[in-house]
Design a protein around this nucleic acid. Sequence first.
DNA 1: GCCAACGTTGGC
DNA 2: GCCAACGTTGGC
Length: 157
Amino acid sequence: MADKNISYWLMKSEPSAYGIKDLQNEKETLWDGIRNYQARNFMRSMQKGDLTFFYHSNCKPPGIVGLMEVIDTHLIDPTQFDSNSKYFDPKSDQKKPRWDCAKLKYIKTYNKILTLKEINEKFNSEELILIRKGNRLSIMPINRLIAQDLFKILDEG
DNA sequence: GCCAACGTTGGC
DNA sequence: GCCAACGTTGGC
């Protein structure tokens, strides 16, 4: 599989807001609108070349649908200064922006969704319990071994 | 700095 | 629509 030095992530998005098809059409996107400090900090620690699973949340069925690559990091999130945006943050200072984000590139859509149900059946690990009811973390790290297991399942589907 | 009230996420 | 989980806010 890929380079040994890269990290793996999972990013959630509601397909009604922004789904894998939107990314496929746009080819790449700024992952803006993140307003949770822990998620932001994970995004800050991303590096170019990292691989990210695209997870569809709040839909039927929820699950991993595709793969992305991190192509840029530490970009200012423009929505924080846009008073028309739902992500507008009046407390953010132009000189010291509170929110930043990464840029992601579309790699692929998997033939089959790896549903949350299947994930929960196949993994007992603490890692993927992070995908659960009430969890507000929309960006999370995935450890290398679990990532490899996920690739194995996803690529043969 | 504590903690109760409140808001959001997201599976079911 | 319900509600568990949990982050955020604000009074003190």
